[in-house]
Nucleic acid binder design. Structure first.
Lengths: 200, 200
DNA sequence: CAAAGCATGTAAGCAGTTACATGATTGT
DNA sequence: ACAATCATGTAACTGCTTACATGCTTTG
């Protein structure tokens, strides 16, 4: 799965410029690509070289020319072939899970702080997502099913963040319960290291 | 977040060889790194060059020498500094969501097939995860909290796949309900393309 | 006798990131 | 006056992937 297919997807909906594609990627909740220049303009160039899209250059007074890309039948064929191929498992890169794995090295207070700052980050992100959804940019809706799917995908993306938030809440509750039972500060050091050397 | 911190994490637990680290990454449910050679051996080399770890070469009869890496205080410092830094949002790369966004281009039958094959993939993966958890490889448990966290992380990872599976189930139900209402085959073509050119 | 495990490493390459480069127009 | 939007592109870099390269030992 690369941005190539996602770009072909957008172009199957309507002709767009690189700039417009970039915006769609950075506005979307559910496409994980940042929509940076190199990625979009570069892929568009490759797509054109390979005959998957055509370009129409529309000169503008005072602003750089717009290059409007249109999908070709060959491009549409590639998109359909991809859609019919075997899907892949989702890949989740969780910085937080990686940290949590070693959070035993932290004291109670530092651990709580870690949970809190992640909860805060998630809350902010969830809020932002909600606002973006309310504003609601233009989406493909060539059929009932398509419109429904775009809605479903966005809801599902949000649901994932909410599940993550709920999990952090549970961890916080557990931490609270645990330290109420044994409130002393305890920092665990690796057994194979001398204690007392590095003290942050 | 890079594999560097995860390696330091494992080494904070106990000295390990590159080979052992590789296995831990490919066995883990919740670390997203594949644990390929270049990544692990390369990072270890860099870590050593920078003084974050030390090496002890243990010659073996008939097998290549084992290089056992031990974390230094500087390495432990780097790990703690990272743990105290701001966490990042999880990044989800969902091939399936990207496909779903353009599934309006598919006919009912192809769409159902797509849902089914993803459901199958998830089922297989969930089963495999369950077995891996039952087998249960050796995990850090220097404190109650650490042991509990490793358990919590693995459960949470599995929960995510299960939520994904439930979602696909819902989409399938919706699709069934929809096509019962209007069972005709309908393929939607991009408005800006002539209909009838490319027919897969 | 083949496959899996032990054990190290290198080469080539893809996908994606940040930052650089330019410059007019519109809104606060 | 400053920031955002419109609009294109390039350079340098990071992180990660697959495949290559070697070769012995244990298990099925």
């Amino acid at each position: 799965m690369s941005i190539r297919h996602a770009i072909l997807g957008f172009l199957s909906w309507k002709p767009l410029t690189g700039y417009e594609l970039k915006k769609r990627f950075s506005d979307a909740l559910s496409f994980h690509w940042s929509g940076n220049n190199n990625q979009v303009y570069g892929t568009l160039l490759a797509l054109h070289r390979e005959g998957a899209v055509t370009v129409e250059v529309i000169a503008q007074e005072k602003l750089p020319a717009r290059k409007v890309y249109t999908i070709t039948e060959s491009g549409l064929g590639e998109l359909q072939t991809w859609l019919a191929s075997e899907p892949e498992l989702p890949v989740v890169k969780s910085d937080f899970a990686s940290r949590l794995a070693w959070a035993g090295l932290l004291g109670e207070g530092e651990y709580r702080k870690m949970l809190d700052s992640y909860a805060e980050l998630l809350d902010a992100h969830i809020l932002m997502c909600g606002e973006r959804l309310k504003r609601g940019s233009e989406k493909p809706d060539r059929s009932e099913r398509e419109a429904g799917l775009w809605y479903a995908i966005e809801e599902h993306t949000l649901a994932l963040y909410r599940a993550e938030r709920a999990w952090v809440g549970e961890l916080t509750d557990t931490a609270r319960a645990g330290s109420d039972a044994s409130p002393e500060f305890r920092r665990t050091w690796p057994e194979h290291l001398e204690k007392g050397g590095f003290q942050p």
